[in-house]
């Protein structure tokens, strides 16, 4: 059996892209926007998960002691906490230690701490590590009932809040992205269709010569794939630049939010972009060629 030359198909696809330059550019732009939005959202979800895991991993409850409590009261409270069920460790942090800890955390703003050192606004706290996550609600309840307890802060509540926000945002984004994806495919369909229409005479002549559907459609499919690859490539560069900038900003200014470094995610990002880009390109070409598949 004779073999077709792949370079011929590729050259035809590139010519097609060039011939319909404006439409090709539109298709690439929309697809890459879609990919960058998709990537941004995925990275956001990934980082939210990293933070949720960090929070949940702590297995920690913070008990804030009443401001009026004396040292004796604190000692009694400490004993009562240690006597409770499901306790792994109890660490007492006095208001002075708390202030010192914050001061070292935000060294660059140490002058602020100088001003508040006289009237320390921080409370005494107990950091409690528990053993069993399933019984944490009982522990929180019991801690809340103790004397001299101002507030009980449970990190799992924060994790749950983030989780529910994430679900809501996910729902909106998934629909938004689905619409963008459909628009990208629609534009690719039109780009390829214009190419096919402008070559309909040629295609009909090819049919009489004995060209197979494979021969006639492959350049257009490759055209779609090239659109996908270019979009993925440009989208990847944009996404990495954007993410890196955000990563630098977040790691400098907001240390309390963990941001995964670019190196952790870039391989998946590139693979994802390529797969989605190529699939979108192929679907777009395939749909626009459907009616030309007849013999």
């Amino acid at each position: 059996m004779r073999r077709y030359n792949i370079f011929y198909f590729i050259s035809q696809a590139v010519k097609g892209l060039w011939r319909n330059g404006l439409m090709s550019l539109a298709a690439i732009t929309v697809l890459l926007s879609c990919l960058v939005l998709m990537g941004s959202f995925s990275l956001l979800v990934y980082n939210v998960n990293v933070n949720i895991e960090d929070v949940a991993k702590l297995n920690e409850i913070v008990v804030i002691v009443d401001y009026e409590a004396t040292d004796e009261d604190v000692e009694v409270l400490s004993q009562k906490i240690k006597a409770l069920d499901n306790i792994a460790e109890v660490v007492y942090i006095s208001k002075e230690e708390g202030l010192e800890s914050e001061r070292s955390r935000y060294e660059e703003y140490s002058y602020l701490f100088e001003e508040i050192a006289e009237e320390n606004p921080l409370p005494d706290v107990f950091k409690i590590t528990y053993e069993d996550n399933s019984r944490v609600a009982n522990l929180v309840y019991a801690l809340g009932k103790l004397d001299d307890v101002n507030k009980v802060k449970n990190r799992t509540d924060i994790a749950n809040d983030i989780e529910s926000i994430k679900s809501g945002v996910s729902f909106i984004f998934v629909w938004f992205l689905a619409i963008l994806f459909v628009i990208s495919i629609f534009i690719i369909i039109n780009t390829i269709k214009i190419g096919v229409e402008s070559r309909s005479k040629e295609i009909s002549a090819m049919r009489y010569i004995g060209a197979t559907n494979f021969f006639m459609t492959t350049p257009f499919i490759i055209e779609g794939i090239i659109i996908g690859i270019i979009s993925a490539g440009v989208g990847y560069i944009l996404q990495c630049t954007l993410y890196d900038a955000i990563f630098r900003a977040m790691s400098g200014e907001y240390k309390m939010i963990a941001v995964a470094p670019l190196a952790d995610v870039q391989t998946y990002l590139l693979l994802g972009f390529l797969v989605i880009g190529v699939i979108a390109g192929m679907i777009g070409s395939g749909i626009s060629l459907r009616r030309y598949m007849k013999v």
Partner: peptide, 10 residues
């Protein structure tokens, strides 16, 4: 081109 269509070598 007619020959290329049927996969004839160059």
């Amino acid at each position: 081109f007619a020959m290329r269509v049927i996969g004839e070598p160059t």
